[in-house]
Amino acid sequence: MSITKTTAASPAAFEIKGSSFTLLVLCLKSSQLPELEKQLQAHLAKTPDYFNFDPIVIDLCNINQNDVKLDFKLLINLLKQHKLAPIGICNGNQNQVLAAQQHGLGIFADIAGLTKPKEQNKRSIHSPSKKESQDTSEPATPGSKENFRPQTKVITQPIRTGQQIYAQDCDLIVLAPVNAGAEIISDGNIHVYAPLRGRALAGVKGNTSARIFCLKMEAELVSIAGCYRVIEEKLPENIQGEGVQISLDGERLVFEPLLSNSTDNKRTVNWQK
């Protein structure tokens, strides 16, 4: 009894939350670690600070045959030397999963073909932050810029309850209604030239300058760079059911009418935690 009392009185020491992160994936094509070390060194020679203990997942899809031996201890040390923080594996076989667990690595759900390489790219990294650093320094691999060519995903059909659309590494434009119970997600901006009744999450990889635009604001939830707001009650008259743009100001989601002529007209709804 007294135990429950003390726990009730003292503030909670921890909280377990769900969250989603964008991670780098290292797709291994060979289990020969000396060769890997050689190539990594050559690769990172010009930009030794390319990685800053970035968490990384090791994808074993190319080397998960039963007879392949992989020394996890060596591999982990090797990656740490290059300022990478291995946190888990995916697409490993049973033995590899066991070995990885013994070395303190997590096991990610196998994703078919996520990093099945088509080109001779050593690394399969899709991360907006790395893209910027690549633009300023030297391009890491010829042709890797191809992967980052900005595109816009355009959806012309209604997005209905239970459906989810994700525009990876690009903006999302929807020309039909997004119904309640549907979810649209984008790494960039979201434009909905129709009623938005479902959930819209822009800049999910952390792009705080992403915005959400819609012609008829009836969303259940909006989020920019992880800062979200559940909309349970009606928004102010000039927002609810109107053309609206939503942006992020610090930790506040700012709702503005799309058709406001002057700044006086600009009444905003602040996001409060």
Binding site: G162, Q163, A180
Partner: peptide, 13 residues
């Protein structure tokens, strides 16, 4: 209406 919406999505996919 919500269930019909769901079915329409499945029908389209």
């Amino acid at each position: 209406v919500r269930d019909s919406d769901r079915i329409l999505g499945i029908l389209a996919a």
